[in-house]
């Protein structure tokens, strides 16, 4: 996941894993180290949509 970045400013993300299985993060949060935007990981899939598209 080291090439994944923030979709908005393309800066690095910091991982906060809540649940892991076999080295895979199942639930957690990715936070942009620059703008602070938070992206959820659900069922092993990071949601990196810009926040305003997440519920659109």
């Amino acid at each position: 996941m080291d090439i994944i970045c923030c979709p908005l400013d393309k800066q690095e993300l910091e991982l906060d894993a809540r649940q892991e299985e076999a080295e895979e993060v199942i639930f957690g949060t990715l936070t942009c180290t620059q703008c602070g935007e938070r992206y959820p990981i659900e069922d092993g899939i990071p949601n990196l949509l810009p926040p305003d598209m997440r519920e659109a």
Binding site: M1, C6, P7, A22, E24, I45, P46, N47, L48, P50
Partner: peptide, 22 residues
């Protein structure tokens, strides 16, 4: 995600105009 258990295959939700890659 459900159709494979190959750990070298990653899926992610994102938008074409805001690609989350370096």
């Amino acid at each position: 995600r459900g159709y494979t258990d190959d750990s070298a295959v990653s899926y992610l939700v994102g938008d074409f105009d805001h690609l989350p890659f370096e």
